[in-house]
Design a protein around this nucleic acid. Structure first.
Lengths: 245, 245
DNA sequence: CGCTAACTTGACTTGCCTCAACTAACGTGG
DNA sequence: CCACGTTAGTTGAGGCAAGTCAAGTTAGCG
């Protein structure tokens, strides 16, 4: 099961500051992120916890395993994969994160990032300083509550994922989860581009790449989806949901 | 894989209020729970977020899947298992929780407990009202931070557990985790009573009961541990650690 | 346009599950 | 406190889902 280490490049530059330095109130995913349900004056207040907004290219790293914790990152656009290389030299994928989601939460308690975060597409990110966030949160009950909600939901998702069943169930659940999350972000739920490779999916779901591939073909033969490379169309979500249970 | 539903009894009575109504500052696990590193006056303040302290017997339920979220519970003594019955009627075990740990965190965002919590031993619990906790937290930065730390750590543990490898690795890691957590609570690290059944362990680790049993015998033959029923003695923690990697 | 990386497909192997039988431990009532 | 019934744990035999190895195909990038 030896895999090559994540091929990542350290981010070095901040690009296109002018265009990127948009405030939270203009952000496409503000209702999925921290500033959910606030008045515009409150949002401007929340806006101040964003230390900087950065732009990264595909394959660039946001942070690396073991690095000391500096910021939480809210994803404005693009897809991020969080991964680590384990004792045996295999890459383990912790998760894939979409716009509006926050990464780095697991580093808060230890002060070190427990995994690396890499952009799967060109991405825009908001660097959030924890101390500032907590300070503002203690003044804005709604923000404190939203932070706790975000962490609670992430925990709930993880806990429900614990019980992995067959390979088909895992792949079906994975595709549906992606579909649902794209849908929440205003994209079409049943037709999208997979931002990650089959190998990534396998490493995330604890399956061999070949198994993922076989299950794609199998689902396609069963008329559940149409996959060509990374282009994916879900043809029968109801059946996929039954399969995922 | 059909299993009987959790055999639980709903808790009805609050027993021995007088003896149990001890304040946080006297609690054996205050340094593992929320009131970590506070002055005694601050602890008394924190104490007020505990709505009530309850005592439950073995097999009694604290809350059930789907019930609306009322309290977080901090475990004062005893071991609690969190579980749910899935679509197929099988019991899934989400986790086992020791004194000083907090359960119900995953229910915050949805307002409903996502699993049931059952005492594996007679237990004492502190019911914490979330609104009160958040209010006090917004005044005491240290408490706010500790809440976030607890959730962050739980998330980190879950995320690192995602990558399950062989059955032996999972069982070894499980035993070491228990051992370490008992150690943190002042118990002997290498000799303890397993509070849960082989079936529970299997359901938690996604293994058949028989597999768990076989691995116990195998570890015993290899001189790594001595197990007699629920009595367990770890004889070679170093080797177990290597096995768990 | 060519080279490399990603993906697919097939054949074989294996770790864990299932089924089944047996033994030990527990707890409850006589 | 012992007898008995019930539940928990152990051990063995056989099967299957998913992994591994290998070869071939497609897609994507420079």
């Amino acid at each position: 099961m030896k895999q090559p280490e994540c091929s990542t490049q350290r981010c070095s530059t901040t690009v296109d500051i002018d265009r990127l330095y948009q405030i939270c109130s203009n952000c496409a995913v503000k209702d999925l992120c921290l500033p959910v349900g606030f008045s515009s004056s409150e949002i401007n207040y929340i806006d101040q916890i964003v230390k900087e907004r950065i732009s990264l290219k595909r394959k660039q790293a946001i942070y690396q395993t073991g690095e000391s914790f500096k910021y939480l990152y809210a994803i404005q656009s693009g897809v991020v994969k969080c991964c680590r290389v384990n004792y045996h030299g295999d890459e383990e994928i912790i998760g894939f994160f979409l716009p509006g989601e926050i990464i780095g939460l697991e580093a808060i308690h230890s002060g070190h990032y427990e995994n690396s975060a890499v952009c799967l597409e060109n991405a825009a990110l908001c660097a959030i300083e924890l101390t500032g966030l907590l300070e503002v949160a203690s003044r804005l009950p709604g923000l404190q509550r939203q932070l706790v909600n975000v962490m609670s939901q992430r925990l709930a998702v993880r806990e429900s994922q614990g019980q992995q069943r067959t390979a088909e169930q895992r792949v079906a659940a994975f595709l549906l989860s992606l579909s649902y999350r794209y849908h929440l972000r205003g994209s079409i739920a049943d037709e999208f581009i997979l931002p990650m490779s089959r190998q990534d999916i396998g490493q995330y779901l604890n399956l061999a790449t070949e198994t993922v591939s076989r299950i794609f073909t199998h689902f396609q033969q069963a008329g559940l989806l149409h996959a060509q490379g990374k282009k994916l169309k879900l043809l029968n979500i109801k059946s996929l949901e039954k399969l995922a249970l």
